[in-house]
Amino acid sequence: MQKLVYCHLFLLSLSCLSCWALSWSQNQQFKQAKNYEGSSDLVDLEYHMGPVLAAPINLYIIWYGHWNPTHQATIRDFLYSLSSSSAPFPSVADWWRTVRLYTDQTGSNITGNIVLSGEFYDSTYSHGSYLSRLDIQSIIKTAVSTSYGPRALPLNYRNGLYLVLTSSDVKVQDFCRAVCGFHYFTFPIIVGVTVPYAWVGYSGTQCPGMCAYPFAWPNYSGKPPPSTSGGNNIMGAPNGDAGADGMISVIAHELAEVSSNPLVNAWYAGDDPTAPTEIADL
């Protein structure tokens, strides 16, 4: 049931792409290279000749702040399931095959091999509990610092992807106001190399109605619609926590976009690459 709910949510976020994925067999999808554009009357998604994440991804999590171990386990389970081949249909891996339809100029598809390769626990709030967007890069720099010895993450500039997750008591610039998460690439002047990364915050206590919808109801929308059986029609969080389940939805969103637009010069719509419409926005 848990996987069904996640898959349903993710397929809704990429509904147009999902229709294409279901219309071809898996062999037909990857037999020959081809670029696929998102279908929308309002969005003109284009390829801008930049790379996609076609090589196997080594994913590194940075847990910033104090975390509930149950929430961490839920998020790990989702990340492990991205490359699972044994889960029954529909599954998260089936959804990721839709993301894989995007290619680069060489005809290489986005990878289906995503491995959780390391975790770093920054429970001392090394950069405080009020973070700017650039602070996220500094957190990555801290996590790969050799001063932490064997605890440090490797600085993998070949096929590394860094996922910074902030706990419920950490406030991030624009969080709950304009964004629930974002992705970009690191600046060599801060981290030392250019690598793709994404950030997602736990919204369960700060703005569940905005960043954990449909598992929570927005305050600005008034009372939620009543249920015919009593109570309301808010969708129950599959794992019992709207903040953690909302994070998984946002993590999926950001992983799809950072894989198809890691250096902000591949798949997007709009004239401004710093504020693009990307594949998970369709």
Rank of each mutant, 00 (worst) to 15 (best):
A93I: 07
S132E: 09
I110K: 05
D122K: 11
R100T: 01
T124V: 07
G112S: 06
Y102Q: 05
W95A: 04
Y125M: 12
Y102S: 01
S117I: 06
H127C: 06
L134N: 14
S132I: 04
W96T: 01
I136Q: 08
T111F: 07
S123P: 02
Y130F: 11
I136N: 09
N109W: 13
T103N: 12
T103S: 15
Y102D: 01
Y125T: 03
F120V: 03
N113G: 01
I110M: 01
W96S: 00
Y102R: 10
T111K: 05
I114S: 07
L116Y: 11
D104N: 15
G128W: 10
G107P: 15
R100A: 02
T106R: 14
L116F: 11
L101S: 02
S108N: 15
D104S: 14
L131D: 14
A93V: 08
R97C: 01
D122T: 09
T98E: 09
L131S: 10
I110A: 01
H127G: 02
L134S: 11
N109C: 09
G128V: 13
W96E: 04
V99N: 00
S117Q: 09
V99I: 15
D122Q: 08
I110S: 01
Q105W: 11
A93D: 08
D122G: 09
T111C: 01
S132R: 04
T124G: 07
